[in-house]
Each structure stands twice: as C-alpha cells, then as structure tokens.
Design a protein around this nucleic acid. Structure first.
Lengths: 114, 114
DNA sequence: TGACAGTATGTCATATCTGACATACAATAC
DNA sequence: GTATTGTATGTCAGATATGACATACTGTCA
C-alpha cells in the first residue's frame, strides 16, 4: 500500500521542495517524506562536519558504505529507523534530532534554511 | 545484526526504564528504543484523547487493528516509520512529534513525566 | 445470562529493507 | 599517466516489517 507511492517518487526523482502537491500524497505521507529528507541532509552535514568518511560511519553502524550513500541521497529504500540510528551513532542527541525533525515542517510558505 | 538484540529485548519483556544497562546495548541502540517507546506511548495517548478506536485509526492508516495494538504495545516488530506515520495521521504536527522525541531522552537521572 | 465494542496476541504470506558486493565516477597526489 | 581515497549506483539473497486473519480477553449494557 505504500509501494506505489514510493515508485512514483522514485520515478519523479524525489523532487526536493514540497513533493506533495503533484502526486497523490496525503499530508501525512509527504510530511513523513520531508522529515526523512531532513534527517538525510542532517546526516551528511554532521558526518562531513566531523570529518568522518561514509566508510567509517558504515563500520560504526555495522553497515556498508553503499547504504550510507543511499541514506544521504535520500533513497526511498532507507527507513527512518536507520537514519535516526545513524545520527545517534554520530553522537547527535535526541534533542538535536528533534530540532532536525521540526525542520522538516510542511510547505505552506516555509523556507528551508539550507 | 539487530535481530539478536531485539530477541533479547523481547525475552526481557521490553523493560520500561533505561533498558540499556543490563543488556549489551549501545547508547545509540537504547536511545532509539526509548524514542520508539516514547512515540508508542504518545500514540495511545493521542488516539484515546481523540476518542478514536484502534480499528478506526487502522482504517485511516490502511493498516489493521492488530498492528495498531502492537504499535501501542511497543512491539519490537514496529518500525519508527509506522509510528511516525500514525501520529501524523492523527494530526500531530512535526513540531509536536519533535517534543515527543525529546521526551525519549536518555536515562542518567531523567524521569519520565508519565 | 448474552451480545456487543474495543483491545490483545499469535501466525503467516508477502512486501519491504538491509548489508554486501561489484563497479563506476570524482578529485587529489604523485 | 596511475594510484589512492571518497562517493554513487545497481543488484541480490537474506532479514525484517507489514497487513490480514483468527482468536481470546475485557468491559459494559441490557
């Protein structure tokens, strides 16, 4: 029941801004997606800021470099669990995580502060 | 690589407080778990507060009553994605979600404000 | 008592996610 | 040039999550 939407998104190339309007996504669906994209961006940012390579992060996570790349690419095959785990492994506090999640706040006039 | 820990947790009955110390869980692992438990509690609370039955929520989610029950029971088989989706479907804003997540903040003297 | 609405718990087939691998690409240093 | 390091992308077998279903347990109301 979720797959069809993921397919559409993949096909659409994960348009960045408010993805919702032109696909048949519900508010909740698109909010979730934007949240994940937000986490994804945060991950890359934090990792780089700490000078950690994807390979190294992968090791800490007991995962693989390719999966880390997919996480940062916002690949739909990546779960929120994995994104959150990764951030936690990078030492991000739940409080900071919360901030990141709020950053994913829905369209309607909001602007992403890069 | 995650399964063994889930098994242990299940065996341990998902002890509520800071689960970490007596199992071989990393900080990140237990932080993730407590976050999920936090979401889980929040879900039940919000759903009840709105007078929505598990069955009804299940329909809105295109899921089933039993899965909603598992979500609220903190069953390890439930993903963070599903928990978050559910809260969103209940109309919870990303900002409120963020608060819930912060509530899952790690042990070290903190107390769960019910 | 029985009937009912809500919830819990177990199982299962199928959908999805995951780590691992191969391989390609980009930039840098020699 | 070609190593080397970091990253991207595709694929796939195996692991995990999912919805659906059956069934049991709980009130509550008559």
């Amino acid at each position: 029941m979720k797959k069809s939407k993921r397919e559409k998104l993949k096909a659409a190339g994960w348009a960045v801004g408010s993805v919702q309007e032109f696909l048949g996504l519900s508010e909740a669906d698109s909010a979730l997606i934007e949240m994940k994209l937000s986490l994804s961006r945060s991950l890359r940012e934090r990792r780089q800021r700490r000078g950690v390579s994807q390979m190294e992060l992968a090791k800490r996570l007991h995962s693989s470099q390719s999966r880390v790349a997919k996480m940062e690419a916002g690949d739909p095959s990546v779960s929120m669990d994995l994104l959150v785990s990764s951030l936690l492994v990078l030492g991000v506090s739940p409080a900071d995580l919360a901030k990141t999640i709020r950053r994913g706040e829905g369209g309607r006039g909001r602007h992403a502060a890069a």
